[in-house]
Simulated assay, not measured.
Amino acid sequence: MSVNIVGEIRFCPHCGRPVEQRDVSGRARPYCPACGVTFFADPKLAVAVVIEQDGKVVLQRRSIDPGLGAWTFPSGYVDRGEPPEVAAVREVQEEVGLTVRLTRLIGLYAEPGDIVVLAVYAGEVVDGDLTCGEESDAVGLFSPDDLPPLAFPHDAEIIAAWRAGSSAPPSPDRAPSRR
Results as ranks from 00 to 15, higher is better:
7 G>N: 06
15 C>F: 09
16 G>R: 06
18 P>E: 12
20 E>G: 02
22 R>H: 08
22 R>M: 11
22 R>T: 02
24 V>G: 04
24 V>W: 13
26 G>T: 04
26 G>P: 12
27 R>V: 09
27 R>P: 06
30 P>V: 01
32 C>N: 07
32 C>H: 06
32 C>L: 03
34 A>E: 15
34 A>R: 09
37 V>K: 11
37 V>E: 15
45 L>N: 11
47 V>E: 10
49 V>G: 08
55 G>A: 05
57 V>N: 05
57 V>A: 04
58 V>D: 09
58 V>W: 05
58 V>S: 08
59 L>S: 04
65 D>H: 13
65 D>M: 04
67 G>I: 00
70 A>Q: 11
70 A>S: 13
74 P>D: 14
75 S>H: 15
75 S>P: 04
77 Y>V: 07
79 D>Y: 02
81 G>N: 12
82 E>W: 03
82 E>Q: 12
82 E>G: 11
83 P>E: 15
86 V>S: 14
88 A>K: 08
88 A>I: 04
98 L>M: 06
98 L>C: 11
98 L>H: 08
100 V>F: 08
105 L>M: 07
107 G>Q: 03
107 G>F: 02
109 Y>M: 00
116 V>D: 15
116 V>L: 11
116 V>I: 15
117 V>Q: 15
119 A>D: 10
119 A>N: 08
121 Y>C: 01
122 A>N: 06
123 G>R: 01
124 E>T: 09
127 D>L: 01
128 G>P: 07
132 C>A: 12
134 E>M: 01
135 E>W: 09
136 S>I: 00
137 D>E: 12
138 A>H: 09
145 D>E: 13
147 L>G: 08
147 L>H: 09
149 P>Y: 10
149 P>T: 02
155 D>K: 00
157 E>N: 13
157 E>R: 02
162 W>M: 01
163 R>T: 04
164 A>V: 05
171 S>V: 00
172 P>Q: 02
175 A>D: 15
179 R>C: 03
179 R>L: 11
